[in-house]
Simulated assay, not measured.
Amino acid sequence: MTTAKEPIKVLASGDHFIAPQLFVDALKSAAPELEFDFRTQTTPWPLEPFGPVGNVKEASGTEEQLLEALGDAEIALVQMAPFTADVIREAPNLKLIGVARGGPVNVDVEAATAAGIPVTFTPGRNAAAAAEFAIGLMLAALRRIPSSDAELKKGTWRGDYYAIENAGIELDGTTVGLVGYGAIGSIVARVLRAFGSHVLVADPYTDPAKAEADGVELVALEELLRRSSVVSLHARVTPETRHMLNADNLKLLPEGAVLVNSARGELMDYGPLPEMLRTGRLGALALDVYDVEPPPADWPLRQAPNVITTPHLAGATRQTADRAAAITAAQAAAFLRGERPQFVTNPEALPGADGAGRPS
């Protein structure tokens, strides 16, 4: 006589963007043949900013809260929960961490790998949202939309914005440089080309044949900066890309260029920007990400002219939340069926990879 197999214990750790129930429903849909025992957790993000927790960054909640919620779970589907080295060490039953983000920055991947725990991620889950937002920031900066709105509400009719020396420029016929050409950058390029822009791309990992097929021009970063009236950042942060825009190369930009960053604050050195804006060397700056989030009260760019700021909202759409939960659940379902998940940060931790993976 055989005994019924125990339900698989799953932690669904969400927040006020990706609710835990989204993970629950997505995993049930992705693996209807399996039985699950769910426990849930809601971290405070985005009502409270994420930040470093233990030895990981961009996390929400505490290690103690996570361990209490985790219990003896085998699978964790998470958004911001802090899977530090200490948490991983205290979770001997854990076999998979599925992270609903483009990169698992809230997980100590080295500790997870050493423990035989694969860590999955969700590339492209917010690509459409972030691309649309970047285009919106460009248009807002080029056409003075936020400042015109604010001044009209105060009773000031800025007819002088129609004067030729103050008039904006169109995307049609303008050269726009994209730094990074992954899922988001490629969508931005497609939209820009529909506007009629000439698109330059700086990304050492882009296949020249793909760039040619997409109708964009692949160039070095320095050339992109020299030629672009608008520059938009879409790269990931790595040791090589940190402060890739800095005092040395920002001066290559044409006079009055517009700079947009909706990717990651660490890609730029923000120090030179206030003076560049005050002198008109930089025509406008549109930011959704910052070197410190949220920016402090004495942040120099608060007083600089022609700055548009939004609170890290580029990926904030309902479709992004649904998509992130679905992709994360699909990776977990594949793992539970003994298949290889599509997006694994540390494939060497998968079962059967040189003896890695925690036993079932």
Rank of each mutant, 00 (worst) to 15 (best):
D172C: 11
A150Q: 14
W157E: 10
G168H: 10
I88Y: 07
E35V: 12
V10Q: 06
G124C: 01
I164D: 12
E170H: 05
A333D: 03
E132W: 05
D322Y: 07
Q21D: 15
V99M: 00
L94P: 05
I135R: 09
A332L: 08
P305M: 02
G102S: 07
E223Q: 14
R101F: 12
G173E: 07
T175H: 07
L301E: 04
G182S: 10
I169M: 15
T345S: 11
V219H: 10
F50Q: 14
A257R: 01
L96W: 04
A247S: 13
V219P: 06
P104V: 07
D354S: 13
K28Y: 00
T241A: 14
T84P: 05
L224F: 11
Q41E: 12
D248V: 02
F36Q: 08
S29E: 15
T113K: 01
R302S: 07
G155I: 15
I8E: 02
G159F: 04
V53Q: 08
E6I: 08
E266Y: 00
S13R: 00
L192N: 00
V199S: 01
L259P: 07
V53D: 07
M276Y: 04
G338F: 02
R340N: 11
A131S: 11
T241W: 03
S228K: 14
L313C: 10
L221P: 15
T310W: 03
P311A: 11
R242W: 00
G338M: 10
R323Y: 04
K95F: 10
E63P: 05
L336F: 04
A194N: 15
L245R: 07
S148T: 15
I327G: 00
A73N: 03
L313H: 04
A356I: 07
T3A: 15
I97G: 00
G315Y: 13
R39Y: 02
S147H: 05
D291E: 15
L11A: 10
G215R: 10
Y290A: 13
T113S: 13
A349D: 11
F121Y: 15
A112D: 09
I164W: 04
G352N: 14
A81T: 02
S148M: 06
G168V: 00
K95Y: 04
G54V: 11
R158S: 12
E266T: 08
A286F: 09
D108M: 06
F36L: 08
S229V: 06
T3S: 15
Q21L: 10
G177E: 01
D248G: 06
A284P: 08
G51Q: 14
A130H: 02
